[in-house]
Design a binder for these strands. Structure first.
Length: 482
RNA sequence: CGGGGUGUAGCGUAGCCUGGAUUAUCGCGCCUGGUUUGGGACCAGGAGAUCAUAAGUUCAAAUCUUGUCACCCCGACCA
């Protein structure tokens, strides 16, 4: 039920729609604009952090995966595989694959790019002077998942993947801390999404990493988990797999240490799942494609020109302050427009009709509270609008935070745990004996997984594992994932 | 990959059980003209469908049978 609402929200706001290929979506202008806004923010932060943007090939030769496979314990790879290069027309005028065009070396459409990047690092890294290397690419990747959910688990999605190589472990870990701060800023201050972060368990981590650090949030209605961002400490795993070595100051060969990190279009799915109400979507002003919508009310034809001029004046004024403003002059009725832009999550609505003109004011409605305000034109209108946008930004975080708090449970009893999971899940803090077997058993019995092992002090306490009763040093986060 | 469901106009659907009065229903959207506009406007006219696909049963198939394809949902999977 809730999922239908989610899909309807995506399609009715024109963020995305189903394509005719299973698991592949069409990201429409409104959705793509949100993505572009997220991109801008992270890109700027990465560049500031000395990352350089690059682009590696979409296709990766299978033999590179073979190399990697010797060193990294991997499970099945659900990827798209390219085996031929040509189509021909047969006698019946049908297009068929030309069997003569079979590739000697099978190519894999990237499911992630560590493989090809570390293979290239082999050429790039020779001396300690070549390090650190910090690169990032914005691209699409394909993982043919058996089961999809639009924007949450697509077979194709868009992401940013940062990759770094360092002289030693200390530098690599420092880099991870930097990225942590950067993602935290994006998620909390730009997306207004409250999160819980921590390490993945061995079972859940990226298998090519020594550890994975994750940011997670829960959805507004079902309390299911969505992964927002991950950072992997690759240690020397990939440098060993691809034989990447540098010579240090003492003329000794060393393996560099690697990290990788990423955020994807799933963040848009998270935004939708976290910020919504009965009227539709609520977008945080900092990433909203439209921050202010101006709706004219023309009830008197004689004043039409005056109203339009008034609106243009205000629009231009707001534009000067780089406020993303749109004036909807379509012939639809005001009521229609109110519903439309509320559904699209536009933070502020300005309504202008003859009443406003007569009094030289504008009517402002906040999307989050629906509170109306009347502002006089001359008194720092732009400043006041920016102020309201700011307050909406913070309020969305507050609302979502309250929701997480409400859905957070400390549970020390397995029956209670099972009940919780089977009803309305949420964020469950329980003790765990740090044993993968226990983790698997809990998952089998309840379908809950360990979402992360948080690092903050407040989670450290001596207790007993909820399943085995063995000793535990801290609480971990259990929940159901999307 | 297992189980279930669906496929009728751009979208959402009725009709299918029980084959024929079907010229395939209705709503939204679209086009033209006009009147409107303070919470999803109204009137008049109009365009748009080989009923997913292939074969079969029949005098007759959107409707029954079989195959195929696609998508959705629930599992398993998920670097």
């Amino acid at each position: 039920m809730e999922d239908k609402k989610y899909i309807k929200l995506i399609t009715s706001t024109e963020i995305a729609e189903y394509s005719n290929i299973k698991g592949f979506m069409i990201l429409k202008p409104y959705g793509y604009k949100i993505w572009e806004n997220i991109k801008k923010i992270i890109n700027k932060m990465l560049i500031k952090n000395k990352y350089k943007n690059v682009n590696f090939p979409l296709l990766i030769p299978k033999n590179l995966f073979d190399l990697e496979n010797k060193y990294i314990k991997t499970f099945s790879k659900e990827c798209a595989i390219v085996t031929h290069t040509k189509l021909i027309v047969n006698k019946n005028n049908e297009l068929i694959i030309d069997k003569n065009s079979k590739l000697n070396e099978v190519l894999i459409i990237r499911p992630t790019s560590e493989t090809i990047i570390w293979n290239t690092f082999n050429k790039w890294i020779k001396s300690y002077r070549d390090l650190p290397i910090l690169i990032n690419q914005w691209c699409n990747i394909i993982r043919i998942e058996m089961r999809n959910k639009m924007l949450i688990r697509n077979s194709e999605f868009f992401w940013q993947e940062g990759h770094s190589a360092h002289i030693n472990e200390k530098d690599a870990l420092l880099e991870i801390n930097k990225i942590k701060l950067l993602y935290k800023k994006l998620i909390k201050y730009y997306l207004s999404i409250p999160y819980i972060s921590g390490y993945k368990t061995n079972k859940e981590k990226f298998s090519g990493a020594k550890f994975t650090y994750t940011f997670e949030t829960i959805t507004k209605n079902k309390g299911k988990f969505i992964q927002l961002a991950t950072i992997h400490f690759l240690s020397k795993i990939f440098s060993k797999a691809f034989n990447v070595k540098y010579i240090n100051k003492n003329n000794i060969e060393k393996y560099p240490y690697g990290t990788s990190c990423g955020i994807s279009t799933r963040l848009i799915g998270a935004l939708i799942m976290v910020h919504n109400d009965d009227h539709g979507l609520l977008l945080p002003p900092k990433i909203a494609p439209i921050q202010v919508i101006i709706i004219p009310i023309i009830s008197n034809i004689k004043k039409k020109k005056k109203i339009i001029n008034f609106i243009k004046f205000i629009k231009n004024n707001l534009k000067k302050k780089k406020i993303k403003v749109k004036y909807d002059n379509t012939s639809k009725t005001p009521g229609y427009k109110f519903y439309k832009y509320e559904n699209m999550g536009v933070p502020i609505r300005i309504t202008i009709g003859k009443n406003e003109i007569n009094k030289n004011i504008i009517e402002i409605t906040r999307r989050d509270t629906f509170k109306k305000k009347y502002l006089y034109l001359k008194k720092n209108l732009n400043k006041k609008i920016l102020n309201i946008l700011n307050r909406i930004q913070k309020n969305l975080y507050k609302i979502a935070k309250n929701n997480i708090n409400k859905k957070t449970y400390k549970i020390d009893n397995y029956n209670e745990f099972k009940n919780r999971i089977s009803t309305n899940c949420g964020l469950i803090l329980s003790h765990w004996d740090n044993n993968t077997k226990t983790e698997l058993k809990i998952q089998k019995e309840t379908r809950a997984t360990i979402r992360c092992i948080p690092i903050q002090k407040k989670f450290k306490e001596i207790g007993k594992c909820i399943y085995s009763g063995k000793k535990s040093n801290q609480r971990v986060v259990f929940g159901k994932s999307y």
